[in-house]
Nucleic acid binder design. Structure first.
Lengths: 240, 240
DNA sequence: GGCAGAATTATTTTATACAATATTTGTTGC
DNA sequence: GCAACAAATATTGTATAAAATAATTCTGCC
């Protein structure tokens, strides 16, 4: 009722800390465990199918099982872990079909949002996006690692989609980015080619936005995501 | 299946007494509390903005705060409650824009799924859907209440969409049905007209599926959902 | 009166301990 | 040897209680 908490630029979303500064310790223990576990899953430190026992995780984090349980429950909502009967949790293993489905969803949702966003974009949004893109392309000379790349990639997409002011949709997309992110990381550690392709597509996308070419932006966005899907499926298909 | 549970209006106690028989239908307490809370929110027993204090809920359900917390965490993932700063949880209040957004999402996702589902539909699916529709139209003579109507309505949609075998998408749609459901209930308690309109659209949709008319089915599906959206927004707009 | 700051209250968060349940191991009879 | 059943073990689910933190009230001082 009273204060809107931390004031965010551009009416930024209320999503929990993701790209922000991890400087201050998190408010609660279960939130910290949540983030840590998620990172471990997405980074591949915890591979698919791994059994996650509560007391084991608890001692690993120097906490009791209560905050661990809560983190697991939230991760289940994000689709990163699954709870089996009374057998506890395991790191969810997505089939190729499910991975493909998630990219299809992104293509659909992000295509829709970019069309809604463009008419509402300010110059600030465009320059923000450009700035992210510069980092993404490693203009500073240094090449970012896969984790950082995924983070910046999401930030770029979010920056372009935010003006649509569709919090609910954006949240779903965020989840999809996260979920697919771990497979993209695997992929990217294999080849550097993908990055360059993505960079080109990102530039095209940004240009279309700057020119307010809604139709072109939509086309590029869908193509961008579906290409990523196809490349990923090829690599994963070969490995499985 | 679900046990009817004690129909407890607000304030009133408990799920079911501990009569020495811990053999409840639900496996765990927090799952039972989750369902009960969700039902209370969707039914309107807990109106928007209501503060949900943990110990209050705990005593109401005759449980400790632990399973209550877990239920709240999951409900937060479903978007039905929100956690404010350190002020605990409140029943989430969706703006008209957010409600509209959710229906738009449904229109997009369900349109997509129905196209994928039709080529994979067996006769069984169609007859299942027809059966649900019969119940929905109250062919048995009895008129179902708003809660039951919402349930059957979801079941109908799910039956048609399931053949697409898109679990991830279907889950999102399910959430959206739930979330929007509570507003539809308000609406439906005001007028019976909507049901008839929906029945007609459902029949059209089923016919298109039976005829494998993908394009028509898509069109009807999108229209069906967007019409529901528009009607709802008019009613809600007048009330607010 | 009004305000800074301490004390109180209200509420959430986490740890410990215990109860319930599933899984595995071990034993007996055939 | 092995099927059936019992004991042991592993693991999850929940209650109680204590610690942490925000909100509120109270008090003394100007």
């Amino acid at each position: 009722m009273k204060q809107p908490k931390t004031a965010t630029p551009h009416g930024a979303p209320i999503l929990e800390a993701d790209t922000g500064t991890p400087r201050a310790s998190y408010p609660t223990l279960h939130a910290r465990i949540l983030d840590s576990l998620r990172e471990d899953i997405l980074s591949g430190a915890l591979i698919e199918g791994t059994a996650l026992r509560q007391d084991q995780l608890a001692s690993r984090y120097g906490a009791s099982r209560i905050p661990v349980r809560e983190a697991l429950l939230q991760l289940e909502g994000e689709g990163l872990v699954r709870q089996q009967a009374n057998r506890g949790y395991t790191v969810s293993k997505l089939s190729l079909a499910e991975i493909s489905e998630e990219f299809d969803l992104r293509a659909m949702l992000e295509s829709d949002l970019i069309m809604r966003a463009i008419p509402l974009m300010k110059r600030q949004h465009l320059s923000d996006a450009r700035e992210v893109l510069d980092r993404l392309e490693g203009k500073g000379g240094k090449i970012v690692d896969a984790r950082e790349w995924g983070e910046q990639n999401w930030l770029f997409h979010r920056t372009l989609l935010e003006p649509a002011r569709r919090e609910r949709t954006l949240r779903i997309i965020h989840n999809l980015h996260r979920s697919g992110g771990r497979y993209v990381r695997m992929h990217m550690s294999l080849t550097e080619r993908t990055k360059e392709g993505a960079d080109i597509e990102h530039r095209k996308l940004l240009r279309a936005c700057a020119e307010r070419d809604v139709h072109e932006a939509r086309r590029v966005m869908a193509e961008h995501i579906l290409l990523a899907r196809d490349e990923l499926l090829v690599v994963l298909g070969n490995r499985r």
